[in-house]
Nucleic acid binder design. Sequence first.
DNA 1: TCTTAAATGTAAACACTGTTTACTTTATAT
DNA 2: ATATAAAGTAAACAGTGTTTACATTTAAGA
Lengths: 218, 218
Amino acid sequence: MIKNEYHHGNLKEEFLKIAFNFIAKEDIDKLTLKVLSDATGTSRSAIYKHFKSKDALIEKIIEDGFEQFDNSTSPILKDKDKPLIDRFYFTGKEYIKFAKENPNLYRLLFGKKYAYIREKIISIQDEDCSGFGALKLAIQEGQESGILKNDDSYKQAIIIWSSLHGLSSLIIDGFMDVAELYEKLYDDMFKTLLAGIIANKVKLLSSLPFGDKLLKVK
Amino acid sequence: MIKNEYHHGNLKEEFLKIAFNFIAKEDIDKLTLKVLSDATGTSRSAIYKHFKSKDALIEKIIEDGFEQFDNSTSPILKDKDKPLIDRFYFTGKEYIKFAKENPNLYRLLFGKKYAYIREKIISIQDEDCSGFGALKLAIQEGQESGILKNDDSYKQAIIIWSSLHGLSSLIIDGFMDVAELYEKLYDDMFKTLLAGIIANKVKLLSSLPFGDKLLKVK
DNA sequence: TCTTAAATGTAAACACTGTTTACTTTATAT
DNA sequence: ATATAAAGTAAACAGTGTTTACATTTAAGA
């Protein structure tokens, strides 16, 4: 595909790339069509040949963003070679790391404004057992092996997700000086959370990160 | 103070009142100066005689909003006639209720955009022991009476706040169908959380809401 | 009470925003 | 080679927050 001065070639992909790079540094509502047109050397209305609206471009960013988020977290949770508790621990840590490194993207993925896209994606994840679906599956795995309490896995998954989301939000939305001591906070939160969903007959030893030897059956 | 057609009387207060009523129903970024001027029968630029900018009006809303939030939650936490665990339980419940009933205001108070105002307010609350300061104080009270683990009260407060914020966000930002089963979720989360910060020598009985009789010293 | 100054309003313009329209240029397929 | 589709532009539109110059009313002092 040869490009000349007039036609750009693959403007659509470039718009997305520029938008991604932009929210790596600035908030999404600072992103204007002028930013995109200036960066590509096109006119402000060029985008409408590739996206129905500015929102449509953002929706695509969100879809790609969820894929990126899932690629960062789910593999850790699914790695059956490692002990389950370790997998929970490191997945949660990666969750927070992702939020910390991509705050603007994270807010986009888990904020109110585009909840309808998240809704759609989560229902897909429920089917192919990625993302939130993977978390529920991992909890079920823990219940079946007797490590976790037999309870509603959906409810347990939400409590875990809720805690991670809460801590991540505190970190990236500038609550006090949380960002500095967040690692200790996470370890504490994890212990607390784990104590709540772990089976009664299983005792948790103190060291972190955990290993399979650190779980003791009473 | 007599009003005629030209001068309004107390336009500043009315702007705030209208803005408050507006975010009770719609998101803050739907609030335009035209909405305010139409509702008061004034011109779009009238607001600049009372506020430096649109943002300055929003900042005032946030300050008032925090006062409102504090009035809803802190009194429950400070009521020393009731057992401490009950106070934690019902304060948390009120926290979530506030978020549920005022989602747009809650997002304004705890979102990223106006974090600098929250920062300012929290430092005030630290001094007069309202809001976040009240939470830390209540935790210290629990530690001194031997009910709670002797740990960094600041860290414990953040973990609690983080959990409440996470669950509230899930509810109001449209995460799945959390809104329906949030009461059960809250009870579960509270138990889990409490198990994490409660002193080892204290055993927690199962019923909710708790009472002082439900705490048993081993 | 008359005059003056301050407070509080308006209208018009400004530079932005996202979006639509009509038009132009280039690429592609028959 | 030519018709058609794809992909760009420029100009206009309504909307945004904000500033400027001006008008009206209120309040205060002599």
